[in-house]
């Protein structure tokens, strides 16, 4: 006797369509990248992905992404705190504007940041006499990656701060803790998983970023050339194997990050209690 296991209708069709669409759009195309690399031996693969120019691009991409995410962790936590705890004029407007880097096309962000930080730009002109060059240097890459990662930490930390009960802070105060102690011993541990998740999301996003970076970076080999640009350059030279080899390295790292972020979110949810 065939049992109806699912009471609500539509399981087969919805799961079937989901899997088909996922396979056609994402899984099969992604697997093409891995299959492409089987055209070369592992030694050749290794040689391609470890040439000095490529290695220099990893260092820049990961280093700048890390610093950008770090800046966002600090200022994102601060921004979330200010938005949740304080009132000031224009707060709702600021809150809405935090998502600008999600909404603004990356190419637009790229040329805008370049215009600001070029040596005749609004900020670049001030920095020039101090001997600080931003545009067309690794510093410019960090600025662009900070911009595109800005909302992540704010938006992961904000709801956790909102849900913190005032009572636990009152309890800490009644037990004799000062405000700084309450912050470091009560509040910070509570938002820590969210903060780490936000950091990881910003970092993951920054690694793959292309549009906002290429305008401000200057794209000098060995100095300010990011890994996604290496892939594009190889493609334009019809070096599909080379482009794919570098892409596979980035894909593997991205997948590991994705798993790490999933783990972090699981941990964050567990820490926030199971009442939801």
């Amino acid at each position: 006797m065939a049992k109806r296991k699912n009471i609500l209708p539509g399981f087969n069709i919805s799961l079937g369509f989901t899997l088909l669409y996922l396979s056609l759009i994402v899984l099969i195309p992604l697997s093409a990248a891995f299959i492409k690399t089987t055209e070369i031996s592992f030694a050749e693969f290794w040689q391609i992905v470890t040439t000095p120019r490529v290695v220099a691009s990893y260092k820049l991409t990961f280093g700048a992404s890390f610093i950008g995410a770090l800046i966002n962790a600090v200022f994102g936590l601060l921004t979330a705190w200010v938005l949740v705890r304080y009132t000031f004029p224009g707060k709702k407007f600021i809150d809405a504007l935090v998502d600008l880097p999600f909404a603004l096309p990356t190419a637009v962000a790229g040329i805008a940041l370049t215009a600001i930080y070029a040596n005749n730009g609004w900020i670049g002109a001030w920095l020039e006499p101090l001997g600080v060059k931003v545009a067309f240097t690794p510093l410019g890459v960090i600025i662009a990656l900070t911009f595109i990662g800005l909302p992540f930490v704010v938006r992961t930390v904000q709801p956790v701060l909102e849900d913190l009960e005032a009572e636990t802070e009152e309890a800490a105060a009644s037990l004799g803790a000062n405000r700084l102690q309450t912050f470091t011993k009560i509040i910070l541990p509570a938002v820590w998983p969210a903060l780490l998740t936000g950091f990881a999301l910003a970092f993951a996003r920054a690694i793959g970023e292309y549009g906002s970076v290429i305008f401000i970076a200057g794209n000098m080999p060995m100095v300010s050339e990011i890994t996604p640009l290496i892939i594009i350059t190889k493609l334009e030279q019809y070096d599909y194997v080379g482009a794919t080899a570098v892409a596979v390295v980035m894909l593997v790292i991205s997948f590991i990050l994705l798993l790490a972020i999933n783990g972090l979110q699981w941990w964050a949810n567990r820490n926030n209690g199971a009442e939801r």
Binding site: T18, L19, L22, V26, L27, I28, P29, L30, A32, A33, K36, A204, R205, I207, G208, E209, Y210, G211, P228, L229, I231, I232, L235, Y240, A243, T244, A247, M250, L251, S254, F255, L257, L258, L259, N262
Partner: peptide, 29 residues
């Protein structure tokens, strides 16, 4: 499945373009 749905967020846009070139490009599948 939920993780797989998230995959495109983790993939660099440049790579998203590349994989379609590998399939539908001149030298592609």
């Amino acid at each position: 499945l939920i993780t797989l749905i998230d995959l495109p967020f983790a993939v660099s846009p440049v790579i998203a373009g590349l994989i379609y070139v590998l399939i539908f490009g001149l030298q592609g599948w």
